[in-house]
Nucleic acid binder design. Structure first.
Lengths: 208, 208
DNA sequence: GACCGATCCCCCGGAAAGGGTGATTTTTCC
DNA sequence: GGAAAAATCACCCTTTCCGGGGGATCGGTC
């Protein structure tokens, strides 16, 4: 028989915290070794508990969940952090994942699905709630009706890589003046007059 | 009773194509209205078939799946495209999703899971195989042990937004010369000597 | 005391950026 | 087949920026 999966819960709402603790603890193969009401509290003693997975809320008193991720990771580099929250904003999801969260679940997830996600994360997966996956996929999607032509898009991408006009000209085997023309047209279409503004506008509208 | 979900399969391997066609067709509520061996073939007649979901392979003769996505989307803007492939490279996943794919499944997915993914996609979800979700999440993650200091990272991010030294200086309320020093130090640490190379290096290593 | 990070200062020359105004050719679309 | 859009190249101009070199100071940290 395999060792139980050790879980720590960090969640400020008493009812929810205790609910999860009981529900997940009942599951075969899981062991909830502790449940904290804040990251700050957890940081004091969590090291010795050496959990496999940390279920982490985002809205917390003191250090919030997003900021908590790197701190927890520092203490427990091998632990997986699973975000468990009501928030579904693109920015929070992005911040959580770039800070090192291994998965992102919303709070409407039933206990058995949470356990499935925990198992998945241990196997190297990246569990996400359905609606989160939708947002993540959407964040990749380019705007299908861009005002820019293919060539313009391509050149703007290169501008976004920090390349100079002459570098772009060399790489595309076209004249420096041609690159200039394209960039000028891009500026007109996006109604900007600098590289920085063009990049910003393009990223905001997912043109690149 | 609800209308059946209309599916078109585009897959070049005869065996796999027929297999999916039969297995998915058997499922309650699904109707496989056609199965093509290539995108080019499909583009000719798929419009009239008006499918709800297109299951699309990537490796195909002629137009490949990635290039096929925008073309299919153009004919059928309301259809969802689900990638079904053996490939798990970050670039392909990224390209597929940015071209407008609604989900990404690997070919080890059993037929009933494919059907579940189809239902999910129609409800606005973004189904992904477990291993794909892992790669997607990993693509967000920043390098936790960057050689750059916080300030340097911040400035490099701004460089990546196409901002000039003086613009960065203004926004951070520091001297132009200070920005210079930071950028010089970034160049030394990353062993580069231009903005473009610094951005490239930083993105490749997920420092920004 | 040594080291790093953040801040600021000076030199230099060449390259790059952006604005204006044009042209030609090829592609695409109806 | 003809109009529109896209892609290509040209030359005018001024201002700014870039990267390389050399420094200094101050406050932490180890």
């Amino acid at each position: 028989m395999e060792r139980n999966i050790k879980i720590v819960i960090i969640e400020d709402d008493d009812t929810i915290r205790m609910g999860y603790k009981i529900l997940i603890g009942e599951e075969e193969g899981f062991e909830v070794i502790n449940a904290y009401a804040s990251v700050d509290e957890a940081l004091k003693t969590i090291r010795g508990e050496d959990p496999d997975v940390i279920l982490l809320d985002i809205e917390l008193p003191g250090t919030n969940g997003i900021e908590g991720i790197p701190r927890l990771k520092k203490l427990l580099p091998k632990a997986f952090i699973l975000i468990l929250t009501v928030y579904e904003s693109e920015k929070l999801i992005f911040d959580a994942l770039s800070n090192g969260a291994a998965g992102y679940l919303t709070k409407d997830t039933p206990a058995d699905k949470i356990c499935a996600a925990v198992r998945e994360v241990i196997k190297g997966g990246g569990p996400m709630s359905i609606n989160i996956a939708r947002i993540v996929i959407k964040s990749f999607r380019k705007n299908q009706d861009s005002p820019l032509s293919k060539r313009e898009t391509q050149i703007l991408e290169m501008v976004g890589e920090g390349k100079s006009r002459s570098q772009i000209a060399r790489e595309l085997f076209i004249d420096l003046e041609t690159v200039r023309s394209h960039i000028k047209n891009i500026y007109i279409k996006l109604d900007v007059n600098s590289r920085a503004d063009a990049i910003k506008m393009a990223r905001e509208n997912k043109l690149i």
